[in-house]
Design a protein around this nucleic acid. Structure first.
Length: 217
DNA sequence: GACCAGGCACATC
DNA sequence: GATGTGCATGGT
């Protein structure tokens, strides 16, 4: 039987256990807010190592900026991001995001950052190829907004521990964190990164629970 | 050679 | 509204 903690305490307990076990994760890997946003699109359903190869290609072309990518033809872009997989789809998605960034904020992530958080989230979700996880990754990791990112690992860990049904809607997972924890971007940053860490290490589709810091929950 | 990875849009029922 | 499918590379 799950321990009958109030959900607030349970989420705080999980965070403490993960942080004690793994320490700070130093997320998101990326030199600039623009690079983080590009990485958020490239990593959709894809191993991060492949994304790094694609980003390296963009850097070698000195193309990791809004102006250059906005001008670049989509087929050239898809060639550069090929290692990230789904390269045709992702090239179109990148172009959509960058078109939005250029048209609404003059290509400036800093200007985008000043937009109201709820309005910006709605605008991001209206972009073709940007769903809730990608939008929230941009808000949290590129712009430092207090928005919790729900991904496959987060869902898997919480459902394995009977905290929430795996197939519950994205927003209800997110509300669990927003209602239980301080709206603190640094906490959300670290916590989500720790979910990915424990997910990669132990809570895979075929779980390897031995040694997992959450096995005593 | 199968399985897996930091989703999303779209078709179909 | 729920369920299934296409998109693709590269590491284990």
């Amino acid at each position: 039987m799950p321990i009958p903690f109030r959900s607030k305490n349970r989420l705080e307990l999980i965070y403490k256990k993960l942080f004690d076990a793994f320490g700070p994760q130093h997320w998101w890997p990326g030199d600039t807010p623009f690079e983080v946003a590009v990485g958020a699109i490239l990593t959709q359903n894809t191993n991060w190592g492949n994304v790094e190869k694609a980003i390296r290609n963009l850097k070698e072309e000195k193309a990791l900026n809004a102006e250059k990518l906005h001008k670049m033809h989509v087929t050239e872009l898809s060639g550069l991001i090929r290692p990230a997989g789904y390269f045709n789809i992702k090239a179109t998605r990148l172009k959509s995001f960058i078109g939005f960034l250029v048209n609404h904020y003059g290509g400036s992530m800093e200007r985008m950052k000043h937009e109201d958080i709820d309005i910006l989230r709605k605008k991001l979700l209206a972009i073709h190829g940007i769903g809730p996880e990608t939008a929230d990754s941009i808000l949290l990791y590129a712009l430092g907004k207090p928005v919790f990112v729900i991904d496959a690992y987060t869902k898997r860990v919480l459902s394995r521990h009977h905290i929430k049904d795996h197939d519950a809607p994205y927003e209800t997972f997110q509300e669990l964190f927003h209602n239980s924890l301080k709206r603190n971007p640094r906490l959300y940053n670290e916590y989500h990164a720790l979910f990915v860490r424990v997910g990669k290490t132990f809570c895979r589709q075929r779980p390897r629970c031995g040694g997992c810091p959450l096995s005593s929950l």
